[in-house]
């Protein structure tokens, strides 16, 4: 009883403190604001010409002035990126499961995949143009090609790292390969899969914008390269800003999906 009464005292003291600002929650906004402020001051201090580094205020001016083409091209880029990413999710999951299925397939295909991933995708775009012409299709395919690799690797890793004891317990019961995959392998690789989506979506943006820059009449990539050729540097930066916002939004969406789908993996310390 005495312990209980002792404990209430410090509790009542802490309760008297005023409500605090949640600095951790506010930090991303404050830091972003700080970056723009520092940038603005730097441009003023160094008296930068607008054709080299426009100040944030000048960029926001450009956003207001060109909002219509910005919006149209942003949506186009978002569309090609999401489509390419969607294909990468389906293809990456399928190839990842295929590669993780057996040690032989893993050993045979892994070097090929690494080699393929090492090819700079900018070198692939001209080939895609020969096959499909310029525009949306090469952008979607480039986004797909660049983003499916991390998905494949993660899914295959999840399958390949099943604890041998788990496999032994099930095999001793007469489990076939397909049973082990369905009961253990696939559920186990899901956190790896959802974790890889965050990386894949950012790469997908890199792919689609790259292709739009080189071979398209639409999209943020194309808009920025034509703005650049007209020395409209504020519009180039406005395009970058739009890309950054889309990238952050999609990343946050993937992080949210990851958390929703694989809550158990955050609680348990899954042996890797």
């Amino acid at each position: 009883m005495t312990i209980v009464t002792d404990n209430t005292k410090p509790a009542s003291i802490t309760r008297r403190e005023p409500a605090r600002i949640n600095w951790v929650k506010a930090a991303p906004w404050l830091y972003t604001l700080g970056l723009f402020l520092a940038w603005e001051l730097l441009v003023i201090a160094l008296d930068m010409p607008v054709t080299i580094l426009p100040a944030p205020s000048r960029i926001f001016e450009a956003v207001v002035q060109y909002w219509s083409p910005l919006l149209k091209n942003s949506l186009q880029t978002l569309f090609t990126t999401t489509l390419g990413f969607g294909l990468a999710v389906v293809g990456g999951l399928a190839i990842g499961l295929f590669i993780g299925w057996s040690k032989t397939i893993y050993a045979g295909l892994y070097p090929l995949m690494i080699g393929f991933n090492a090819i700079p995708k900018v070198a692939v775009v001209p080939i895609l143009v020969i096959w499909f012409g310029i525009g949306t299709i090469p952008a979607v395919i480039t986004a797909f090609l660049i983003s499916f690799f991390p998905i494949v690797v993660n899914v295959a890793t999840g399958l390949a790292t099943i604890e041998p004891e788990t496999e032994d317990v099930l095999r001793a019961l007469g489990a076939r390969k397909i049973d082990i995959m369905l009961k253990v392998g696939i559920p186990r690789s899901m956190p790896y899969f959802f974790g890889s989506l965050k990386i894949a979506i950012t790469l997908a943006f890199v792919g689609s914008v790259l292709s739009e820059t080189v071979a398209s009449n639409y999209g943020l990539g194309n808009m920025m390269s034509s703005a650049q050729s007209q020395f409209n540097v504020p519009l180039v930066f406005a395009g970058l800003l739009a890309l950054a916002i889309e990238g952050i939004a999609m990343y946050a969406l993937m992080a949210w999906i990851e958390k929703r789908m694989t809550g158990w993996a955050h609680r348990s310390t899954m042996a890797n």
């Binding site: 604890e163 253990v184 186990r188």
Partner: peptide, 18 residues
């Protein structure tokens, strides 16, 4: 081949976390 009239348990409990 594996005989299913046995049950096995190891030091690592290997319960599936999901």
């Amino acid at each position: 081949k594996p005989v299913s009239i046995v049950g096995m348990a190891f030091q690592n409990p290997t319960l599936l976390p999901w």
